[in-house]
């Protein structure tokens, strides 16, 4: 069943891709093939392979339960929040929070997670900023 859904999504993607390719504006001077042909070929391969999944699906993989899916969704949300907060909070604080969260959700006890998160953040800061001199995001506090 998963493969049929996947095939449907793939097919929709292929149609959308080819439709977008027809909208590419061509310039007045161009080579024999032009900028549309290659996307058409790719779109065709994408569509044909998606059709194959629809017609001959593999057995479904074991999807995680709702709880685990929520878990993964939350982790993704935290990572996105991290990318947004990085310039606001600065590298050290944002990273400490994000890695503490991930460590906690991977099965560490809460207090230890906080310690691990802070240690990870400071460790990366020392190695990459102080030793290797990489530019990391600076927050209001300067680190």
């Amino acid at each position: 069943m998963s493969d049929r859904v996947f095939g449907g999504v793939g097919l929709a993607l292929a149609v959308f891709y080819i439709w977008q390719a027809t909208l590419i504006e061509e310039s007045f001077i161009q080579d024999m093939v032009g900028p549309k042909m290659f996307p058409f070929i790719i779109g065709a391969v994408l569509g044909l392979s998606s059709l194959w999944f629809l017609l001959r699906p593999d057995p479904s993989p074991r999807w995680p339960g709702a709880g685990r899916l929520f878990e993964i969704g939350m982790a993704v949300a935290v990572m996105v929040a991290y990318t947004i907060m990085l310039p606001e909070l600065g590298f050290v604080i944002a990273t400490a929070i994000a890695s503490a969260y991930l460590t906690w959700r991977l099965g560490t006890r809460p207090l230890q997670s906080v310690v691990a998160g802070v240690a990870t953040s400071l460790g990366i800061y020392v190695v990459f900023r102080l030793i290797l001199g990489l530019s990391l995001a600076k927050g209001p506090l300067g680190f």
Partner: peptide
């Protein structure tokens, strides 16, 4: 403990 470090180093 390791995987969060992997994630953070990727971001860095």
């Amino acid at each position: 403990l390791l995987m969060p470090v992997v994630a953070m180093v990727s971001f860095v």
